[in-house]
Amino acid sequence: MQIYIAAAFVFLLLAAVILAGKIAPNDPYRTNATLIRLAPCREYPFGTDNLGRCVFSRVLFGGRTTIAATFFLVAISFGIGTFIGILCGFYGGIFDRIFMRIADIFLSFPQMVVAIAVAGILGGGMAGAMVALGITMWVAFARLARSHTISIRNEPYIMTSILAGKGGVYIMFRHILPNILAPVLTNALTQIGTTMIGLSGLSFLGLGVIPPTAEWGSMISEGRAYIQIAPWTVLFPALATIVTITLFNYLGDAVMEYRNV
């Protein structure tokens, strides 16, 4: 039940962001020197920012940036991590040991510190920020996929396949992947909130999106200077961030709880 409610809200949110082009009343990038820092009104429901841009439209489009980047990053880490994890778990041996040592090493470094340095040195906008976070993110997926693979590796149906002379790749995709997908996907879901916090944090520091691209973290950062005279430029993207992260975390918790019962 909890899952359905959370999923419905997430769906609404995604719809709003995907349809941003249709919903947004104004062009999020059109600056207007005569409409600077306008308080919320009918035409500009969330007011305008320091360059006269519509905050409501920018929140919608900014959500698109934040959510798309988060999904993309989680999906990539999930893909790479799961792939490596299954390989390690299925074949074991020296390959497994090398990769798990590498994973241990990655886990030994503070993620955000590494991310800030990498993003800062690469200086490559959102892509740089995603690489910076991604280099440590795959590890959790790899470990999870590996341990689940090991736990089912000796099941009869997999042994049968091996004895039937099926190739490793076939077994991994046909038998192992579908069986370990649920727990690893659940983990991916719970990672969305954390990833969003990381990405928007980097954007807030100016290490993520390059202006004028709309993104919640950078919008909050930009609006911060005018928070005394135009609080709406900060409060609305802030609210959007809180609501979104809370929703995804809630959905993640609900699915996790459902799977544990």
């Binding site: 944090g201 807030f204 973290g217 909050i220 911060r224 609080p231 992260i245 809370t246 809630y250």
Partner: peptide, 22 residues
């Protein structure tokens, strides 16, 4: 704790600044 966990710290600091300082 769930809400605290869902809030990026930059956001909390901006909100605290707004409420407590301004």
């Amino acid at each position: 704790s769930f809400i605290g966990n869902s809030m990026p710290n930059f956001l909390i600091s901006v909100l605290l600044m707004y409420v407590l300082c301004i």
